[in-house]
């Protein structure tokens, strides 16, 4: 058993000069092909036992009981989708980790110096495990855009970071989910480092059936991990 290769027509290059930090951090020598062994087809195992009670509800898991208890500020949203492989097989019981800025475009991270307010009731980190159909679901706050130093008047489009292991070390993926219609997408060198034909896979779709009346807008974002090279024979476990 092994996993299909990373499809380099779908992934960004390692050095993309418009995204300036890649210039000194992306390797310059070609990647060396590594035939997958047990070390690559096995991978970290984290299931429901890894989760805390409110880990998938980012509108609750950062609430403080102190001076200003209550709900985080901003627009509540539901973000859901399926984790699949390239053959559209649902990836059940997979850990999905997310982190994001608050509604004002500010991260809890101590290194974030953007002059926008922190929200005492919003932390911005969460996780969940996919169900039997590969589905994950988060309740959170619409993240704000924020400025960064890549070039003059540079702004990151609103996004949520996703981290997944999938079934093996080879299927590891960290990506970013963007929002439909964001005018900053066309100007963002990180989004635009992705090959044009694959770029729209990073953009969630607004979905009225995911939207809950009187509560929150809904977005759908499927994540496709590398598929398996061979299909297991009938009856094989």
């Amino acid at each position: 058993m092994s996993f299909r290769q990373r499809d380099w027509a779908s992934h960004p290059p390692l050095i993309h000069p418009d995204y300036k930090s890649t210039v000194l951090r992306g390797p310059t020598k070609p990647l060396v092909p590594l035939p997958q062994s047990l070390s690559e087809v096995t991978g970290p195992v984290y299931g429901a036992e890894s989760l805390g009670p409110d880990d998938a509800d980012l509108t609750r898991n950062g609430r403080q009981g102190g001076a200003s208890p209550g709900e985080p500020l901003g627009e509540r949203i539901i973000v859901t989708g399926r984790v699949l492989d390239e053959d559209e097989k649902p990836q059940a019981n997979m850990l999905v980790e997310v982190w994001q800025a608050n509604a004002a475009g500010r991260y809890v991270h101590k290194a974030d110096q953007h002059e926008a307010p922190l929200d005492p009731n919003f932390f911005g980190g969460g996780r969940c495990v996919t169900d039997g159909e590969g589905r994950y679901r988060f309740i959170t706050i619409m993240p704000g855009a924020y400025p960064w130093g890549n070039h003059d008047n540079a702004w990151r489009p609103a996004h949520i970071h996703f981290s997944l292991f999938g079934p093996g070390l080879a299927t590891r993926l960290i990506t970013q989910m963007y929002f439909p219609g964001d005018p900053l997408l066309d100007l963002d060198p990180i989004f635009n480092a992705t090959p044009l034909s694959a770029r729209n896979r990073l953009v969630a779709g607004f979905d009225i059936t995911t939207t809950e009346a009187g509560f929150a807008l809904g977005y759908q974002f499927d994540i496709v991990l590398r598929g398996r090279c061979e299909t297991p024979r009938e009856g094989a476990s």
């Binding site: 559209e88 970071h161 990180i190």
Partner: peptide
């Protein structure tokens, strides 16, 4: 019955 891989993006600084 096939879907393209979701592209990787940077982990970022935060």
């Amino acid at each position: 019955m096939s879907r393209g891989q979701t592209p990787s993006q940077t982990i970022g600084p935060f």
